[in-house]
Design a protein around this nucleic acid. Structure first.
Lengths: 189, 189, 189, 189
DNA sequence: TTTT
DNA sequence: TTTT
C-alpha cells in the first residue's frame, strides 16, 4: 500500500453504450470500452497513420450508475482509475486466461450529451457508499441500498463510514473489492 | 465539477521536515516543500545542467499527521494532489499576492526511513473523515486521536461518513475547504 | 533527473483566447489560463458549492502555435505539463515575487471548435525541435514557418526534426529552458 | 490523436530482473513485471488485507537498455507509459488471446541500487530517435552503443539524436510501433 | 477570465 | 465497437 501507485488516466470515446448490471447482492456494475487514438508517421512510407487502442473499463456503484444512465456510445469521456488483471480458467482448454481492465473511480463526460439527455456533461467520482436506492426495477433485482441520501464528492474524496458504531447490513454491500465481485461472472468479458 | 480535472503528481525530496500545526478548530495541517529535478543539455555550451524545482505542498488531517510524524528532510516521497492558488493582500503595499500550492490527498514515502523511525515507508491517503476530533487545544497539543484505527485505504478511496445519523460536532470540523482554513494564516507561506 | 516526477494534468476551459507572442530569438510562446471546477458540499449549510480554480499555462514552439491558432476562449481543453515557479523582484518594493505556471507539453482541444474554425479538435504535443526557425524578427513578426509540415505526435512523443540534414542556426534557437526565455518578460504575467 | 489520452503511472517493485533482448533489426526491448500493492479493509472480517497487482511492462530502445542494465529484481521503480493490448491466436485452440502491457516511455529507479551497481538511481525517458544503430547482430549481441551519451532528459522530453550529422540507416530502425515489433514474438509473454 |  |  505504501510506496505504490497504480494510476490510469484515459480520454477517449465510448465504443458502445455502457452495460449496467447488478451483482447478486445489489452492486451496480457498468462495463464499457473506450477508444484512444494515437497518431504516428510510418517510417517506411512516411505516411501518417492513426492507431486506435481499446480499453476495457469497469465501474462500480454510483459511478456505474452514472455511466449507465448518462453516457452513451460515441461520447468523449475521461476515466481515472487503476489497472486490474483478472485470471480465470478456460472451461474448454483448462488454460489460464487473463483480462486486464481499468477499474474506474472517476468518470466524466467531456462533450455535450446528445439532445434529450439530461445531466449531460456530468461526471462522477464513485464511492462505496454512493449507491442509489433503486427499487428493484431493472437488471438483476438489487435490494437494500437504502443509503442513497449520502453525500458524495466531498472535498477530500474520501469519507468515513460509520464513525464509532457497527455498520449494519454488511451482507448487502457486496465484496469490498470489485475483483471479487467480478469473479461472479461466468464469462469474463 | 464535471468535465474537469486538476491533478498533480510529484516524486521528489523533502527540503525540510514537514511543519505540522493545527488550526483553531483542530484541523491538522502539514506544510512542506518538495524538490524535483530535471536534467537538460544546455544548447549553447552542450553541457548537462540539472535544474531543481521547488514545490509548496500542504496536507490536511490524517495525511498531515502522517507527514508530520513519519516524513523527514531528505526523504524521497510521492505526492498526489491538486493545484490551488491562494490570494492575499500585501499588508504593506496593498498589492495582490498569489501563492500556488499542491493540496495533497495522497503522500507516500518511497525510500527507507532513517533508522529509529517506525512506519518507515508508509503512505497515507487522506480523508475528510479521517480527522481526529481535536478539542481545540490549539497548536501542537493534540490529544486523543482516538480514531486513528480508521486509517485505511479502502478500495474506492471514499467512504461514507455517518450513515443514517446526524453528524455531531460540526463546529469542530473546520472549514470544508483547506483554502478557507488556510485563510487563517497571517503569513501565507 | 532521476527519481523525480513533476507532472500536471488539467481538464478545463480557457478563460480567454491564448496570447501568442514571440521571443526576440523567434520562439513562439502562448499564454493562457484554464479554469477547473470542483464541487463540494458546504458542511455548515449542506449546500452544494462549486469552486473554480484558475491555472496559468505557458506553451512553447509548435504547441504554442497550435494554442494560438486553434484554441479560443471557452474551449474545453486538456493540458499535460509540469509545474514551474518563476521568481522576480518587484520593481517598486524590491520584494521577491513568485509565479507558478504549468509549462505545457501536450495540449488538446476536447470539444468541438466553433464554426468557421478549422482543425477544430486537434491537439499538439510540443517538441524542442519542433520550432520554426524564425530569423529574429522579434515579437509579432514571425514569417516563414517553413517547417510546419513536420510530423508531430509520433509514437514515442519525440521526434527527430532533422532527418538527414544538418541543423543550422543553433544560435537562433533560444534558451533551452522556457523559464530562461520567459525571463525576458518585463511583466511576469 | 486529438482529444485522446492514454496514460499509466506506476510505482512498484520489479518482480524479476528485466529481460533485455533485441529484435532482428536491432531494437532493444526490455520486459519486466511490476507489483503494486493496495491495502483495504475486508468488510466481513474487518481485517486489513493487502492485495498485489502485477503489471507487464515493455520498454524499447534506450529506455530498454537502461532497464536491462541498471534495474534489478526488487528495485522500487516508477513507470510512465501507455496501455497497449496485443492480440494473437492460440496456436492450439485457435482462440483469440489478448495481453495488455504498459509500454513505458519513462522509467526511473527510486531506491538505491544494490552495492556494486553503478548509475544507481538513474532514470530514463526513452525516445524514438534514441536508439542505438545496432547493425543487425541479432539477439544479445549489441555492439557499439556509440550514442549512449545522448541519454539526457531535455526539457521537452524530446531530443535530437542527430546533432549536425546525417542519420543513416533508416532501414535499420525497425517498425515505428513497438506492437509491430513485438509481433515478431513467437510467445506473447 | 471559462463553462454548466 | 467510437470519433475526426
Amino acid at each position: 500500500m505504501a510506496g505504490s501507485m497504480n494510476k490510469v488516466i484515459l480520454i477517449g470515446r465510448l465504443g458502445r453504450d455502457p452495460e449496467l448490471s447488478y451483482t447478486p447482492n445489489g452492486q451496480a456494475r457498468a462495463k464499457f470500452s473506450v477508444a484512444t487514438d494515437e497518431g504516428y508517421r510510418d517510417r517506411q512510407t512516411g505516411q501518417k497513420v492513426e492507431r486506435t487502442e481499446w480499453h476495457n473499463v469497469v465501474a462500480w456503484r454510483q459511478t456505474a450508475e452514472f455511466c449507465g444512465n448518462y453516457l452513451t456510445k460515441g461520447r468523449l469521456i475521461m476515466v481515472e482509475g487503476k489497472l486490474q488483471t483478472r485470471k480465470w480458467q478456460d472451461q474448454n482448454t483448462g488454460q489460464d486466461r487473463y483480462m486486464t481492465e481499468i477499474v474506474a473511480d472517476n468518470v466524466q463526460g467531456l462533450d455535450r450529451a446528445p439532445d434529450g439527455q439530461q445531466a449531460a456533461q456530468g461526471g462522477h467520482q464513485g464511492g462505496y457508499q454512493q449507491q442509489n436506492n433503486y427499487q428493484q426495477q431493472g437488471q438483476q433485482a438489487p435490494q437494500a441500498q437504502q443509503q442513497s441520501y449520502q453525500q458524495q464528492n466531498t472535498q477530500y474524496q474520501q469519507q468515513n463510514p460509520n464513525q464509532g458504531q457497527p455498520q449494519q447490513a454488511e451482507e448487502d454491500l457486496g465484496p469490498a473489492f470489485p475483483s471479487e465481485a467480478s469473479g461472479m461472472d461466468d464469462v469474463p468479458f
